[in-house]
Amino acid sequence: MSNEDVAILVPVFNEARVVGDVVRGLRERFDRVVCVDDGSTDGSGDAATAGGATVLRHATNLGQGAALQTAIDYALTLPEVRYLVTFDSDGQHQIDDVLAMLDLARAEDLAIVFGSRFLDERTRAGFLKKLVLKTAVWVTNQSTGMRLTDAHNGLRVIRRDAATGVHLTQNRMAHASEIVLQLGRTKLAWREFPVHLLYTDYSKAKGQSLLNAINILFELTFR
């Protein structure tokens, strides 16, 4: 397998219905899939293990940001890992996008590649959702000084040297802006890449709801 220097990092919280298939799909192309089970109560950890992932377990639920940081800390203990890929556990992301982003990072010597659903027209989001996400992007850009088109996209390729600069303290959803801020501070080369988010009925029912977006805005404003 050609992606031996890649670790796919998947924070998981109560996604037992889908995480097994997500991990299996990833394992077809990647040796190393690391799931951090963030205190799930529905057997998500076992499903991920069955799918072929290395599973780390949080004894209690801390939030996606905390799970991501644990995954990063773990991946950095593996000397052969050169690229870290953050990937959502609910099946929204495409493996082809990951491969394309890795190719781009290798070809152009980029330290960071952010996935963006707004660089092309493939992803269909509702008007309100778009509005909230765009607002979140604007707030993030104001505080980070970067010019991203999509701040709350869970798909990112992070090279080892950039990952050492990430120390997330926002345990809940606002980590998505925090990671952009900290990656920006590394001053390493970055690029955005158009990705396709599949809004399945499952992800719509539980993923980033509008209420969640409101929480993000609050966490960012009153931190």
Partner: peptide, 18 residues
């Protein structure tokens, strides 16, 4: 306190993985 719980939980998860 939240910070401590986070650090503790993370250390535990990493130790278990090791």
């Amino acid at each position: 306190l939240n910070r401590q719980i986070t650090d503790l939980t993370r250390a535990l998860a990493l130790a278990e993985a090791r």
